[in-house]
Amino acid sequence: MGGHSLLLVRMHAQLRSLGHELKLVDLFQFSTVSRLAEHLESAPPQPARFEAIEERVDRGREVLERLRREKGRRR
Rank of each mutant, 00 (worst) to 15 (best):
R61E: 11
S34T: 05
R49Q: 06
L36S: 02
L40A: 02
R61F: 07
L40Y: 00
R74V: 15
Q14R: 15
R68C: 11
K71G: 07
A37Y: 06
L7N: 09
H4Q: 12
S34R: 04
S34H: 06
Q46E: 14
I53V: 15
G2A: 13
L18K: 08
L40E: 02
R75T: 06
G19V: 04
E54G: 12
S31K: 00
R74K: 15
A37N: 10
A48P: 00
S5I: 12
E55Q: 15
R66W: 06
P47V: 01
Q29Y: 13
L8Y: 02
G2C: 09
P44M: 03
F28M: 12
S42L: 03
A48T: 09
R59V: 08
E65H: 09
E21C: 10
V9N: 04
H4W: 10
A37W: 06
H12M: 01
R10C: 03
G72P: 00
L67T: 04
L6V: 13
F50R: 13
M1R: 01
E65Y: 07
R61V: 05
F50T: 14
L18S: 08
G19F: 02
V63R: 03
D58F: 01
A37H: 09
L7V: 10
L64H: 03
L6T: 13
V57F: 09
S42T: 04
H4I: 11
I53T: 15
G3S: 08
R75Y: 08
R35F: 12
L18W: 10
L15Y: 01
H39P: 00
L15W: 02
R59N: 11
H20K: 02
A43Q: 13
P47F: 00
H12E: 01
A52V: 10
E51D: 08
L67R: 06
R73L: 14
S31H: 02
P44F: 02
R56A: 15
V33R: 08
E41N: 10
V63H: 03
L40Q: 01
P44E: 02
R56T: 14
E51F: 05
V57M: 10
T32W: 04
A48I: 09
G2Q: 10
G72Y: 03
L27C: 03
R61S: 09
L27H: 00
Q14D: 14
A13G: 07
E21S: 13
K71E: 12
R66S: 07
E54T: 12
H4S: 11
R75L: 08
V57K: 08
E55I: 11
R10W: 07
L64Q: 04
L27V: 03
L8M: 12
M11N: 02
R56N: 13
R56K: 15
E65T: 07
E55D: 15
L67E: 07
L8S: 02
M1F: 05
K71Q: 14
L67W: 06
V25P: 03
E38K: 06
R75C: 06
E38Q: 11
D58E: 12
L27Y: 00
A37S: 13
A37D: 10
T32S: 12
A52K: 11
Q29C: 12
S17F: 10
L18D: 07
R75K: 11
M1K: 01
V57Y: 07
